[in-house]
Simulated scan of single mutants.
Amino acid sequence: MIQRIQSIWLFLATLTLILMLVLPIATKEINGAKSEIYTNGLHQKFEDNNMSSLSVQPFFPLLITNIAVAALAFINIFNFKRRSLQKRIIIFNIAAIGGFAFWCSIYAKKIPGGLDGASFGVGAYLPALAILFCVLAIFGINKDERLIRSAERLR
């Protein structure tokens, strides 16, 4: 149930983290083979005689971490009645997203041929956007706390 603006920011952070499942982090083309890094693994597309085949090296720990960080942001939406707990969970989620982004960069180095000449996809920038949404959610919580304190002062 959307009660406050921070719920919208947390929902946008969740959507951003879910988009990381389908958008590439890095892409590189070597000798007609296109390699892409996603959070679920390394995908390689080979072009030979108009036949394209797909080879996948799975990254299950990275995939599970992506789902867990997105789930944490989504579940935190429902803590709107306990603002201090919600704020602490958001701060933990920001640290987790930062660690997840660092871990994605380590996995991106596993692209064949290294990162030299690779182009970063939209997925490489989404953790920063998710962190921005979490920070905006904290600002919304602080605004609610100030409003409640001023209403109590008027009583």
Rank of each mutant, 00 (worst) to 15 (best):
M1C: 13
I2F: 13
I2D: 09
I5F: 12
I5Y: 14
I5K: 13
Q6T: 04
I8Y: 07
I8C: 14
W9M: 10
F11L: 10
L12W: 02
L15K: 08
T16F: 01
T16S: 12
I18N: 08
M20E: 09
L23V: 12
L23N: 11
L23T: 15
P24I: 07
P24Y: 03
K28C: 01
E29W: 00
I30C: 06
A33S: 11
K34A: 05
K34W: 01
S35L: 03
E36K: 05
I37F: 04
I37Y: 00
G41V: 00
K45I: 13
D48E: 15
V56L: 07
V56K: 02
Q57C: 08
Q57L: 13
F60D: 15
P61W: 02
L62D: 07
T65K: 13
T65N: 14
N76S: 07
N76K: 01
I77F: 05
I77Q: 03
R83V: 04
L85F: 15
K87P: 08
R88W: 12
I89W: 13
I90H: 00
I94S: 06
A101W: 02
W103R: 11
W103S: 10
C104G: 06
S105Y: 04
S105G: 10
K110M: 08
I111R: 00
P112A: 04
L115H: 09
G123S: 01
A124L: 01
A124F: 02
L126E: 02
P127N: 04
I131L: 10
L132N: 05
F133C: 09
I141R: 07
N142G: 14
N142C: 11
N142F: 14
N142P: 10
K143Q: 13
I148Q: 13
R149A: 15
R149Y: 14
A151I: 11
E152W: 12
L154S: 11
R155K: 13
